[in-house]
Structures are given as structure tokens and as C-alpha cells.
Amino acid sequence: MQPQTAPSPQFSLRPPMEAREKFNRLTTWVIVAALLIWSWRGSEMNPMTLFRDAGNIGTLLGDFFPPNFMDWRLYVKEMLVTLQVAIWGTVLAVICAVPLGILSAENMVPWYINQPVRRLMDAARAINEMVFAMLFVVAVGLGPFAGVLALWVHTTGTLAKLFSEAVEAIEVSPVEGVRSTGASYVEEVVYGVLPQVFPLWISYSLYRFEANVRSATVVGMVGAGGIGMVLWELIRSFDFQRTCAVMAIIVLVVTLFDLISQKLRKMVI
């Protein structure tokens, strides 16, 4: 006698679908399609202009070439300032995100601590660094320091969330082991939690540094120092050949730092 579960010629890897499942799947597709159409209207999508104004775009692109590297000394100097802004913005954020990350982890502190800290971090993360940069320019004046502050606040929000997620994914058994020796709460965190999350934290910090090198190039546009300021001046004066040179330098440096940080991240994990 043949058992009923034996593979038949029409064997399928998926279990047979019920009518309700079929309906659910259809509904999902309808919702996705509706969302796409709705957003198309709102964002005034008009692909035809790309073809109609192809000539204009061509002329604009033409204006970019050949790039003008006459003032390359200035660009390199400002690019270095941008990097310096990214470095300090990230370092300050990492320092603040360590305690804040632990304070917003569910398994480390009671809800009446982690919930307020989380909401604060949400706020720091929700506002783009450009907005913070504009505010800090008003507060501390034009210049790179405003950029550092902007990156600091925004990155703290992002890193605290990533750090706390790493903390929430730890194993409890080593922590319990440390606790069983009679250690205090802070010692439990230092010896039971930190060694477990350390590689992940380093990796997240480096990833944010990459992102901050990119962000630091734009915070300058609102007056917070670095290459962004130069870029903004050039674009405003329609000097596209020099703009092209600056963009080339940005692409070069950002790519370089992405590669370096990728290598470092592979090393720590």
C-alpha cells in the first residue's frame, strides 16, 4: 500500500494554497499598486521632461567638462576640514552612544528609563543633520564646529539605537556567570555585556564614520564649514567646471574611506 504523503508527479515545494491565502496575496498586490500610483501623483513624476529637455541636460553636462582643477589646493584643504569634522562628529557620538545605548536597551534597564531615553534618541535621529547644522550655525556661528555638533547629535541618535539592538541580542548566560561571582551591576555590564557587543559596536561606529564623511560634505552647504561651503559657492555662481573638480575630489575621498573602513570592519568581526 502506498502511503498518502509520498511525492506524486505534481509534487510542489509549496503547500497547497487556501482560498483565503490567495485572497490575502491579491490584496497585498493591490495595496502595493495603489501606494505606487498615489505616490506618483504626489511627487509630480514626469519622465517625459527627461526626453523633452534632453538638450538642456546635455548642455549642462557639457558645461561640467573639462573639470577645472586650478584651485585644487583650496579644495584639498577644505576636504581635509570635512574629514576632520567627520572624525570629531563620530568620536563624540560614539562616546555618548555607549551609555545611551545601554540605557535604551530593554534587557538592561526598566521601561521607565529605556522608554524616555529611546524617545530622546528618536528625536535626535529623526531630524536630518542638515537641519541641525542650520540651527548650530545660528548658535555657534559659521564654520566647521557647527558641522561637528550637527553630526554629533544626529549620529548619537543613530548609534544609540544600533548599540542598544546589539545589547538586546546578547546571551544572558555569561552575564549570569559574572553575576554569580558577586559582581556589581556596572561590573556585570563591563565584563558580561561589553565583550559580547564590542565587535558589533566597532563595526557600527566605522559604518557611521563612512556615512559621516558623506554627510560632512553637505553640512557645509548651510555654512557649517568644509568642502560643502566651496561647493555651494561654485554652484551658485554657475561655475560648473570647478564644481566638477570638487565633485571628483569628494567621490575620490568618500570611496577611499569606504574602502578603508570596510577593511577595518572585516578585521574586527
Binding site: S173, P174, G177, T181, Q196
Partner: peptide, 26 residues
């Protein structure tokens, strides 16, 4: 009170010596 657990409950990324020395933390 020394506690020995089924899953050892040591901190995997630390050296053996450091794990053992944690006994002196208190």
C-alpha cells in the same frame, strides 16, 4: 557561593585567565 552552570556561563571573547580572575571582582 560558587555557581557552576550547565552552559559554563563564561564570557567567550575574553581569555580564560581573565574569566577566571572575574571571580575576584567583588
Amino acid at each position: 557561593i560558587g555557581v557552576i552552570f550547565q552552559q559554563f556561563n563564561l564570557v567567550g571573547r575574553l581569555s580564560v585567565a581573565r574569566n577566571v580572575c572575574l571571580g575576584a571582582l567583588s
